[in-house]
Design a protein around this nucleic acid. Structure first.
Length: 124
DNA sequence: GGTTTGACTCGTA
DNA sequence: CTACGAGCCAAAC
């Protein structure tokens, strides 16, 4: 056994792990050519006001996932304008056919609208 | 313990 | 249209 609990490698609690796993499921469900806001992903992952936590979950994510399809509710990249991450995100979205005008995306056109089944599948 | 931080959001001006 | 502030909540100090 591990005699020193403090020596244990930093692992997420079951709650965090569950949330992060759900974020991963939701994000991987976003089809190419569509985008979702952080708040939308948070709600679908079971945390209605956890928009900020989605960002962290994506940053800490180990498994590859289409993180570039998650943008702010205002239709912009959450990364600083002009940053490498921002440009890569917008470039990836453009490759998928998402129109990016002045660093902005029309959420009314490109926002992912999961059908009822997709929503129900990830309910607890 | 309290305080700050952050890949956010929303209302108000 | 942009700007600002309050609200949000777990992690990191």
């Amino acid at each position: 056994m591990n005699a020193s609990p403090r020596a244990r490698a930093p692992e997420p609690t079951s709650t965090q792990a569950a949330f992060q796993a759900r974020v991963g499921e939701v994000v991987r469900s976003i089809p190419p050519g569509r985008v979702a806001s952080y708040g939308q992903v948070a709600a679908l992952a079971g945390m209605p006001r956890g928009a900020r936590h989605v960002g962290r979950a994506l940053r800490l994510a180990r498994a590859p996932m289409p993180w570039h399809r998650v943008i702010t509710a205002a239709g912009r990249s959450a990364f600083p304008p002009g940053s490498v991450a921002c440009r890569e995100q917008l470039a990836r979205l453009r490759e998928e056919g998402v129109a990016v005008v002045s660093g902005r995306i029309d959420m009314r056109r490109f926002r992912w609208r999961p059908n009822l089944d997709e929503i129900l599948w990830r309910l607890p």
